[in-house]
């Protein structure tokens, strides 16, 4: 080969085409790249798809029957009334809000406290064990939580507080708080971990105690991540379905006390969708609740994302 080349200097020009040609691997690579790109944007397609399809099913109702003022101000959710069905979602919104609020009162202090303990105080094996335990707690299915509310918590609340019904805001709130706390703990601990160790070392070198370091250095630096953790916890509580379906007592009313039964937005869809005829007003109304839920959780997640992005920019 080499001899040939020396005899014919022009060979170089032709031999490069022999080297530089597109082979099967080249085309395979391009093909795979297209497939992977489709996979890459699938999440966008699905989120759009969710919005499009729930809007499509709720659209007729929104156009013909939906009354924005009634939806947000009337506590009367009577979709099955044959004479005069009304679609006021206020009681459902209040139901969801009261349960989520109670859940956050339970979950925020405990999950932040646990995150600080696991992230800043605990060491070695204890720390690993606690992290794994928290991760396992986050995995308990919501229907099991609902069942716990229904069976164990219900009886406990009736005994402890001497109230007639144990299925109420308090029950669902505590259940939801216990459900959301492990996830919030994990996210909050990640936020604490993201604070560079140099910050801690610098503060400790100045003679600060561990707690002073946490309070003056770590917590302020991790602030955004902690806010995001709380927001995601709120989103989770807001969208939780099975546990609130089973533990709230399921009665449409504006509650007076924490021991009143309520009904949540999600639970309403879960309880009623099975009994509606496709295309009916009631069916459309439930999808409209879905649109509302979608938009609110979307905004919560977007805010959380923007808050987290705020950290990264710094």
């Amino acid at each position: 080969m080499a001899d040939q080349k020396q005899e014919q200097p022009m060979q170089a020009a032709t031999s490069i085409d022999a080297i530089d040609k597109r082979n099967l691997d080249w085309f395979l690579d391009k093909g795979v790249q297209v497939l992977i790109f489709i996979g890459g944007i699938s999440a966008i397609i699905f989120v759009l798809g969710i919005f499009v399809f729930i809007t499509k099913e709720g659209f007729d109702f929104v156009l013909s029957r939906f009354d924005l003022a009634e939806f947000f101000t009337s506590p009367n959710w009577r979709p099955t009334s044959s004479a005069n069905p009304t679609y006021g979602a206020l009681a459902l919104i209040v139901g969801t809000a009261s349960v989520t609020g109670t859940a956050m009162i339970v979950a925020i202090p405990f999950s932040l406290g646990a995150a600080i303990y696991i992230g800043e105080f605990a060491t070695g094996k204890t720390r690993e064990a606690l992290k794994i335990l928290v991760e396992l707690l986050a995995a308990i299915p919501s229907v099991v939580w609902g069942f716990i509310g229904l069976s164990i918590m219900n009886a406990l609340i009736i005994d402890l507080f001497n109230v007639p019904i144990g299925l109420n805001i308090f029950n669902a709130g505590v259940i939801l708080g216990l459900m959301a706390a492990p996830i919030m703990t994990t996210i909050a601990e990640d936020a604490l971990k993201a604070v560079p160790d140099e910050y801690r070392a610098a503060a400790e070198a100045m003679g600060a105690t561990r707690w002073q370091v946490i309070r003056k250095v770590v917590l302020p630096a991790a602030k955004n991540g902690l806010v995001a953790a709380v927001l995601l916890g709120v989103g989770r509580g807001f969208g939780e379905t099975m546990a609130v379906l089973m533990a709230t007592g399921h009665s449409v009313q504006i509650p007076d006390s924490i021991f009143d039964s309520v009904r949540a937005l999600t639970a309403t869809i879960a309880a009623e969708l099975g009994e509606t005829a496709v295309g009916s007003d009631h069916y459309g109304a439930l999808f409209t609740l879905g649109i509302f839920l979608f938009i609110v959780t979307f905004l919560i997640n977007l805010t959380a994302d923007l808050v987290v992005r705020g950290i990264k920019k710094k």
Partner: peptide, 16 residues
């Protein structure tokens, strides 16, 4: 979108 897919309530997934 991935965060949202994980954050959309499960009952909304059911509606979808």
């Amino acid at each position: 979108a991935i965060i949202n897919l994980a954050g959309v309530p499960s009952i909304v997934h059911a509606l979808f």
